[in-house]
Nucleic acid binder design. Structure first.
Length: 538
RNA sequence: GGCCCCAUGGUCAAGCGGUUAAGACAUCGCCCUUUCACGGCGGUAACUCGAGUUCGAUUCUCGAUGGGGUCACCA
């Protein structure tokens, strides 16, 4: 078989050589790591993507390298309008920014185009090269024929796939191929696998040495449309674009042999692989399972934006599951910027982590505590503009809002009330008259005296009282009505009292904020002002 | 089914041949306290199993079991 003749028959339009391409894509000069995110443009982006993107970003930027965005749109069915913008904006929200690639205001960087569908001529140069060297061949098998092969394989218990004797287009003569081409019979280009009966080893930056059998599959590298499959595009692009570290989910591990053979046949050196563990969730059956775009909309990034989690909190949480030593570092360095933490692939876990909302909430409390109230207002405002415009009026008095958000935060043992925007709004709603409502009942112990308690409270109320004067008055009211002035007395002799001062103050609390739990009432009253305080007591 | 990855409390996880098997979250109890939150103290709770190697295995090897992934002209 004259392979070069075949290559020319298949790729008459390809005039460039591989040397031409190498001139267009010179080796990068930077010393740092080069990573990339290669999303397919479905526009859907979930926590798992963010998790991976975070690894890419840290690896690149921590080493003074480059992080770029490549759109992997080799499957035209997947394309969703505006998806690229969504991806970029979602990631930017979490402070993950690209240095080059297919960005919103056009391409940036010297290794473009960064959209795979625009790189067809490049892939063809290398596909042609492989054909010319007898390492790839056209395959004319139809879908039906492939199904038949699979059925036959099942019958004889052979592994499914096109390989070895099942690869029926492998041994077509030039004349046969030419005849089909002229007859416009559709075909794909397949790798002609060497199917070495041995195992190979690859170093993975997360998992250490990986050992698996060599590939034996005649994988499709160019589809009938002339567009490459992921496997081929990955190898060609990452080599040409100078990627040093390929970060991807562990679901790619099984196709690693294909990629390794592709690199070998192309005469290239594979880059460092970093196969991350998948983020899991508990399925309906109680078992762990991979996050799925279809089934788990609540784990899409939008869910967290909707709830109003602060991006810094999500980043902080992600880092705790990404690098096992991060929490320790954080405890030792509570005030350092997250950038200062030295992220390493070695410290990454290689078993799938279950997403833990409790932990996120806990982390979030600490993160929000460190954010000044004025910034919190900005954050809340941006969130409400997008997700809850009906509360827009709470931003009309910024200073007031800041004061509200700052309750108890300056103390040595600060309150950690804030977790995420939606919850914060709910928490502070009683500070706004239109959102204030009585949500809970008076405590059972003081229910019958509620009216009396409030009357006496209004009578003695002096807005200029300081906190201790104010509470002394409540103590007095409690005693007058037969409640213990100290909870301990009540606990000792529960029969002697109707209840204790806590029950009395809870009546007042319910009147002021509408619930049985809140920060200090005196402080709240000071913020509300005398007029509104009295209003609510009526 | 073949191949691949993984395996310490409910969750995330330290550990890398000898430890009373860390820590965080969650949970429970106590303390602080006018409620809640915060904080403090304490408790419950783990090495999947079986063979080896070894004086000694959570740690190394093999096997089993379990979980996950993958076997497309999807990525």
């Amino acid at each position: 078989m004259e392979y070069i003749k075949l290559a020319n028959l298949l790729f008459p339009h390809v005039t460039k050589t591989e040397e031409d391409i190498y001139r267009e894509f010179p080796k990068r000069k930077t010393g740092g790591k080069v990573t990339r995110l290669g999303p397919s443009p479905t526009g859907f982006i979930h926590l798992g993507n963010l998790y991976g993107a975070f690894v890419d970003e840290r690896l690149a930027h921590q080493s003074g390298g480059t992080f770029y965005l490549r759109i992997e749109d080799t499957d035209d069915k997947r394309y969703v309008d505006g998806a690229v913008e969504t991806i970029i904006n979602s990631l930017r929200f979490f402070d993950i920014n690209f240095d080059e690639g297919a960005l919103i205001d056009g391409e940036k960087g010297d290794y473009g185009p960064y959209t795979q569908s625009l790189r067809a001529d490049i892939y063809h140069v290398f596909a042609k090269k492989l054909v010319a060297e007898g390492k790839a061949y056209p395959c004319f098998l139809t879908e039906d024929e492939i199904n038949e092969i699979r059925a036959e394989q099942e019958k004889v218990k052979a592994n499914p796939g096109i390989y070895g004797k099942w690869a029926k287009s492998r041994d077509l003569s030039y004349e046969e191929i030419e005849e089909k081409i002229n007859a416009k019979v559709p075909y794909v280009i397949r790798l002609k696998s060497s199917a070495k009966e041995e195992r190979f080893q690859v170093e993975d930056a997360i998992r250490g040495t990986l050992e698996m059998p060599c590939n034996n599959l005649d994988t499709v590298i160019l589809k009938a449309t002339g567009i490459p499959t992921y496997h081929f595009a990955h190898v060609v692009d990452d080599h040409l674009m100078g990627t040093t570290h390929v970060v991807r989910g562990e679901e790619w591990l099984p196709s690693l042999p294909i990629h390794v053979e592709l690199f070998e046949k192309l005469g290239w050196q594979p880059m460092t692989y970093c196969h991350t563990a998948q983020l899991m969730k508990i399925g309906e059956d109680g078992n762990k399972r991979k996050l799925s775009k279809r089934k788990d909309p609540e784990l899409s990034l939008d869910y967290y934006r909707n709830m109003g989690y602060h991006p810094a909190a999500v980043r902080e949480y992600l880092l705790t599951i990404l690098n096992s030593n991060f929490e320790e570092w954080r405890i030792a360095n509570p005030d350092k910027d997250i950038e200062e933490f030295e992220f390493t692939t070695q410290k990454m876990s290689n078993s799938g982590a279950l997403f833990d909302l409790n932990k996120l909430n806990d982390v979030s409390k600490d993160v929000l505590l460190k954010i000044p109230a004025s910034e919190l207002v900005d954050f809340l405002k941006a969130w409400s503009d997008e997700f809850k415009p009906e509360v827009g009026h709470i931003f009309s008095d910024r200073k007031y809002l800041e004061t509200v958000l700052d309750i108890g935060r300056a103390e040595a043992k600060p309150r950690k009330d804030h977790i995420y925007a939606q919850q914060m709004i709910e928490n502070i709603s009683y500070f706004f008259d239109d959102m204030f409502k009585i949500e809970e009942d008076f405590p059972a112990e003081a229910k019958d005296d509620a009216k009396l308690i409030l009357e006496k409270y209004i009578e003695t109320y002096d807005h200029s009282d300081d906190q201790s004067q104010w509470f002394d008055k409540i103590r007095r009211i409690a005693e007058e009505l037969g409640y213990a002035a100290k909870p301990k007395d009540y606990k000792k002799n529960p029969d002697q009292y109707k209840g204790h001062v806590g029950h009395v103050s809870t009546v007042i609390r319910v009147a002021i904020v509408g619930r049985t739990q809140s920060p200090d009432i005196w402080e709240i009253q000071q913020i509300l002002g005398e007029e509104r305080t009295r209003e609510r007591l009526r």
